[in-house]
Computed example of a mutant assay.
Amino acid sequence: MLIRTVEKFMREFGVPPTRFGRESVRDPRLVFDLRQGREPGERIKRRIEHFMNTYRRSAGQ
């Protein structure tokens, strides 16, 4: 489930929900909406995954 991956990422890197949404898909409400059951499309999922992978690489992990 995408929200679990996002929550784990935010805990691991100390990224607040609004910042995560804004930087990954330009939607500061993204994480709050995911918590409420929003199911994003494939394009948004790919953008989220790309953001997390890029962030991890830049953090040296």
Results as ranks from 00 to 15, higher is better:
R19G: 05
I44H: 01
G60T: 12
S24G: 09
L30V: 07
M1I: 11
E7L: 12
E42A: 09
Q36Y: 03
E39Q: 15
L34S: 04
K45G: 04
K45I: 09
G60H: 12
R29W: 03
M10L: 11
P28S: 10
G37A: 08
H50V: 01
E12H: 08
R56G: 05
Y55A: 07
R35L: 08
R11V: 09
E12T: 14
K8R: 15
G37L: 07
M1L: 13
P40W: 07
F32V: 11
Y55C: 02
S58Y: 06
G21C: 10
F51S: 01
R19H: 09
E49T: 01
E7W: 08
H50M: 06
F9K: 06
L34F: 02
R38D: 08
R26P: 00
M52A: 05
R57E: 13
L34V: 01
Q61L: 12
E42R: 11
N53Y: 01
A59H: 12
A59P: 03
Q36K: 15
P16W: 05
F20V: 08
R29D: 10
I48R: 01
F9E: 08
M1H: 12
V6G: 12
R35N: 08
M1V: 12
S24F: 08
R11N: 13
R4M: 13
V15T: 10
M52P: 04
V15W: 05
T54C: 09
D33Q: 14
M10A: 06
F32I: 09
E39H: 13
P16M: 09
F9N: 02
P28R: 03
F20L: 11
E42P: 08
R4G: 15
M52I: 06
